[in-house]
């Protein structure tokens, strides 16, 4: 356990010093400028628009960070050969993979907290800082969704080079983000048998609709009590499966 904590901490430290903060700074400017510009141009409740943009931006930036840092997590160490001295210590490969994953999770948590604080400032400017409390479940499910993406990025990083890993992880995200609507649209426009097959796919393909509660919260449609619990279970399920695969693959990989 101590080894996992050490790998996580130094993975976080290495990444947080590696220009990630510039991305956050860019986000801060982006969200402020965009929010102010849009509220000037549109008719409607400014707070709703700002909320929509704020939560959407937190999701996009978390996803981008998860993919582009995650796919390099192990591969970069293989390419630069930083892995050799690390694995020459009494550290199992399982501890290494888990440490890398939790280091990345740690980074995303900090990133989401920083972006939420920027979001809070924006809400305050538009007179609704108390809304952030109501949005916490949405921020939590964004974190859950990002955690699944990180686990897939780690898996790809143990298997293949960053370019291929990036394509696979982005595909996972796109499938997860669109599978619910795609399946819904296809099953309503096809024969009953095909619809059954397509419906079965819903249980295999990742479905991020379980994590999407932003609209419900921003536009006051309410939230079922079980939703957060199910989303947590669903994310945990994906992460456990994917991380187990990563550990199995990495334990059988020759570090050449």
């Amino acid at each position: 356990m101590n080894n996992i904590i050490s790998v996580s901490y130094y993975t976080f430290l290495e990444m947080v010093r590696n220009k990630v903060l510039y991305v956050l700074l860019f986000f801060a400017l982006f969200i402020f400028v965009l929010g102010i510009a849009i509220t000037q141009m549109t008719i409607g409740d400014n707070l709703d628009i700002i909320s929509d943009i704020g939560l959407g931006t937190i999701e996009i930036f978390s996803t981008v960070l998860a993919i582009f840092l995650g796919i390099n997590l192990v591969q970069k160490e293989l390419t630069l050969k930083t892995l050799y001295p690390l694995l020459s210590k009494p550290l199992s490969r399982t501890e290494y993979v888990l440490g890398k994953f939790f280091g990345m999770i740690f980074l995303i948590v900090v990133e989401i907290i920083v972006m939420s604080l920027i979001f809070l400032v924006l809400l305050h400017v538009y007179g609704g800082p108390e809304r952030l409390i109501a949005y916490l479940p949405a921020i939590y499910t964004i974190f859950l969704q990002t955690a699944t993406i990180i686990s897939v990025a780690v898996l790809c990083s143990t298997l293949t080079e960053p370019t291929v890993g990036g394509i696979l992880t982005i595909s996972f995200y796109l499938i997860g983000a669109t599978s619910y609507n795609l399946v819904y649209a296809i099953t309503h426009r096809t024969s009953e048998n095909v619809a059954k097959v397509i419906n079965t796919l819903r249980y295999i393909l990742p479905d991020f609709s379980h994590f999407n509660i932003k609209d419900n919260l921003v536009y006051g449609r309410g939230l079922e009590g079980l939703h957060i619990g199910f989303a947590s279970f669903y994310a945990l399920f994906i992460v456990l499966i994917v991380l187990s695969l990563s550990v199995i693959f990495f334990n059988t990989k020759e570090i050449n």
């Binding site: 130094y10 430290l13 290495e14 010093r17 590696n18 630069l80 050969k81 930083t82 050799y84 001295p85 020459s88």
Partner: peptide, 9 residues
């Protein structure tokens, strides 16, 4: 290792 490289940050 040969030509060691470590965490640059």
């Amino acid at each position: 290792p040969e030509r060691p490289y470590f965490y640059s940050q």
